[in-house]
Protein backbone atom coordinates (compact mmCIF):
# COMPACT_ATOMS: atom_id res chain seq x y z
CA UNK A 1 0.00 0.00 0.00
CA UNK A 2 1.29 3.43 -0.94
CA UNK A 3 0.06 6.98 -0.41
CA UNK A 4 -1.64 6.74 -3.83
CA UNK A 5 -3.72 3.76 -2.60
CA UNK A 6 -4.80 5.76 0.45
CA UNK A 7 -5.78 8.64 -1.85
CA UNK A 8 -7.96 6.25 -3.90
CA UNK A 9 -9.65 4.90 -0.77
CA UNK A 10 -10.39 8.41 0.55
CA UNK A 11 -11.59 9.46 -2.92
CA UNK A 12 -14.06 6.60 -3.12
CA UNK A 13 -15.31 7.04 0.40
CA UNK A 14 -15.53 10.78 0.96
CA UNK A 15 -17.06 12.07 -2.29
CA UNK A 16 -14.20 14.45 -2.94
CA UNK A 17 -12.43 15.16 -6.19
CA UNK A 18 -9.26 13.19 -6.78
CA UNK A 19 -7.25 16.36 -6.25
CA UNK A 20 -8.94 17.13 -2.93
CA UNK A 21 -8.43 13.56 -1.75
CA UNK A 22 -4.78 13.82 -2.66
CA UNK A 23 -4.39 17.11 -0.81
CA UNK A 24 -5.97 15.91 2.39
CA UNK A 25 -3.92 12.72 2.54
CA UNK A 26 -0.84 14.84 1.93
CA UNK A 27 -1.97 17.24 4.67
CA UNK A 28 -2.38 14.39 7.15
CA UNK A 29 1.20 13.18 6.75
CA UNK A 30 2.57 16.74 6.57
CA UNK A 31 0.86 17.56 9.86
CA UNK A 32 2.30 14.42 11.46
CA UNK A 33 5.76 15.28 10.16
CA UNK A 34 5.64 18.89 11.33
CA UNK A 35 4.49 17.81 14.77
CA UNK A 36 7.38 15.37 15.10
CA UNK A 37 9.77 17.97 13.75
CA UNK A 38 8.65 20.31 16.53
CA UNK A 39 9.55 17.58 19.03
CA UNK A 40 6.02 16.58 19.95
CA UNK A 41 4.92 12.96 20.09
CA UNK A 42 1.82 11.60 18.34
CA UNK A 43 -0.82 9.34 19.81
CA UNK A 44 -3.27 7.74 17.40
CA UNK A 45 -5.66 5.70 19.50
CA UNK A 46 -6.29 2.26 18.05
CA UNK A 47 -3.17 2.50 15.91
CA UNK A 48 -0.12 3.46 17.92
CA UNK A 49 2.18 6.18 19.21
CA UNK A 50 5.07 7.86 17.46
CA UNK A 51 7.59 8.67 20.18
CA UNK A 52 10.79 10.72 20.03
CA UNK A 53 13.76 9.58 22.05
CA UNK A 54 16.94 11.51 22.75
CA UNK A 55 19.99 9.29 22.53
CA UNK A 56 23.23 10.19 24.26
CA UNK A 57 26.50 10.03 22.34
CA UNK A 58 28.17 6.63 22.54
CA UNK A 59 31.24 4.87 21.30
CA UNK A 60 30.96 2.76 18.22
CA UNK A 61 33.19 1.10 15.71
CA UNK A 62 33.38 1.17 11.99
CA UNK A 63 32.68 -2.48 11.22
CA UNK A 64 34.65 -2.29 8.01
CA UNK A 65 37.87 -0.73 9.27
CA UNK A 66 37.62 -1.49 12.97
CA UNK A 67 38.25 2.17 13.82
CA UNK A 68 36.73 3.61 16.98
CA UNK A 69 34.19 6.27 16.22
CA UNK A 70 31.90 8.46 18.26
CA UNK A 71 28.21 8.04 17.54
CA UNK A 72 26.85 11.52 18.10
CA UNK A 73 23.86 12.38 20.29
CA UNK A 74 20.69 12.28 18.25
CA UNK A 75 16.93 12.27 18.37
CA UNK A 76 15.27 9.19 16.94
CA UNK A 77 11.69 8.32 16.18
CA UNK A 78 10.12 5.04 17.26
CA UNK A 79 6.67 3.65 16.66
CA UNK A 80 4.90 1.87 19.50
CA UNK A 81 1.95 -0.08 18.09
CA UNK A 82 -1.22 -0.04 20.17
CA UNK A 83 -2.53 -3.21 21.82
CA UNK A 84 -5.49 -2.99 19.44
CA UNK A 85 -3.27 -3.01 16.35
CA UNK A 86 -1.10 -5.82 17.72
CA UNK A 87 -4.16 -7.95 18.48
CA UNK A 88 -5.81 -7.13 15.16
CA UNK A 89 -2.93 -8.20 12.92
CA UNK A 90 -2.91 -11.55 14.70
CA UNK A 91 -6.57 -12.22 14.06
CA UNK A 92 -7.47 -14.76 11.39
CA UNK A 93 -8.28 -13.23 7.95
CA UNK A 94 -11.78 -11.86 7.22
CA UNK A 95 -12.78 -11.10 10.78
Amino acid sequence: MTKADLVDIVYEKAGLSKKEAQEIVEDIFDTLKNTLKAGDKIKISGFGNFVLRDKRPRKGRNPQTGDDIEITARRVLTFRPSQILKAFINEPPQS
Binding site: M1, L6, V10, K13, A14, V25, I44, G46, F47
Partner: peptide
Protein backbone atom coordinates in the same frame (compact mmCIF):
# COMPACT_ATOMS: atom_id res chain seq x y z
CA UNK B 1 -11.11 10.86 6.53
CA UNK B 2 -8.56 10.47 9.33
CA UNK B 3 -10.42 7.38 10.57
CA UNK B 4 -10.56 5.99 7.03
CA UNK B 5 -6.82 6.43 6.57
CA UNK B 6 -5.78 4.69 9.80
CA UNK B 7 -8.42 1.96 9.50
CA UNK B 8 -7.22 1.09 6.02
CA UNK B 9 -3.60 1.09 7.11
CA UNK B 10 -4.61 -1.38 9.80
Amino acid sequence: IVETVFENMK
